[in-house]
Amino acid sequence: MSNALLSRVAPTLLGEPECIWPAAATLGEGAVWSPREQALYWVDILGFRLHRWRPADAAQSTWTFDEEISALAERSDAPGLLITLRRGFALFDPALPDTAPTYLHQPEPELIGNRFNDGKCDARGRFWAGTMDAACEAPTGSLYRYQLHEKDSRGDCSRHDQGFAVTNGPTWSADGTTMYFNDTVTGRIYAYDFDMATGSVSNKRQWLRFAKGDGLPDGMTTDAAGRLWIAHWGGACVSCHEPMSGAELCRVTLPTRHITDCAFGGADMRTLFITSAATGLTPAQQEAEPLAGGLFAVEIDAEGLPANLFG
């Protein structure tokens, strides 16, 4: 069956979601599966922590930073990670835990109320990341592209859209011709035409808007068939959508409301890892949702795509 047809087929959950790490993260995010380490990296943005979970032996590792860490990608031609910290793009090698991250570029020195949030690499190794208002109110966030050039070891950063209070995503269609990006506060998911050769976006349009009461779109990923999987902040689920119409095909229901990100991984790329947040809950909600901030996993009869490498 072609991807165009398969993308319209509802995938099947092969079990119930399991909390594999009850980490009580303040704001879990940034899930990335590492094929070379056979492990999942994820972050606690407001806890200033990078986490790694290895399924083979359930080993847990944590690195603590001096500021927010919000997204990451493995480097293609060197050890370690490209990460986004509060102010911009940096390098960090988990194998050298006593070495501080090295900032490469800070694009918004004048916007002291902003911080970086979600981000991912495209298929050519360019890292796309959004900034946001730390108070989640003012539309001061932008979408940036950061890439390396042979002539400049510190890379090049360019802004491609702006006017967001909270940014999340992006993810791409299976053929790489469409990029999706979330304006979380308004509940809107936008699609852009994406030029892979130049790394540019155009023709911005609303692709989907969550219904009132169904939470807000947070982190997301694309499976091998091109279906989009989107975390619902305040909606206690991850929903799966057909890429053209946005029609919902299925959803994964979680035992806590603030679901923040999802990524496929595991040896066969059929495990969906899901992050969540403990922030924003009332004391009563915290008592009713003891797994808030945990890392979850569920097996699905859909194959994911390996995360693109930076470089």
Rank of each mutant, 00 (worst) to 15 (best):
M1Q: 09
G15P: 13
C19Y: 11
P22H: 12
A25W: 08
T26W: 05
P35G: 05
H51P: 00
P55D: 02
D57V: 04
A58Y: 12
A58T: 11
F65S: 00
F65L: 01
D66I: 00
S76A: 15
D77C: 14
F92K: 03
A95D: 10
L96W: 03
P97Q: 01
A100S: 01
P101N: 06
P101S: 02
L104P: 05
H105Y: 14
E108M: 02
E110A: 13
R115G: 01
D122H: 05
A123R: 14
G125S: 08
A129M: 03
S142T: 11
S142M: 11
R145K: 12
R145D: 01
H149P: 04
C157V: 14
S158M: 14
S158L: 15
Q162N: 15
V166M: 09
V166W: 01
N168H: 06
N168M: 06
G169V: 07
G169W: 04
M179V: 07
Y180P: 11
Y190N: 02
D193A: 11
G199T: 08
S202W: 05
Q206W: 04
R209H: 12
P217M: 13
L228S: 01
A236Y: 06
S239H: 08
C250L: 13
C250Q: 15
T260V: 04
C262M: 05
G265H: 02
F273M: 04
P283N: 05
A288R: 11
L295M: 09
I300H: 01
A302N: 09
L305A: 01
L309P: 00
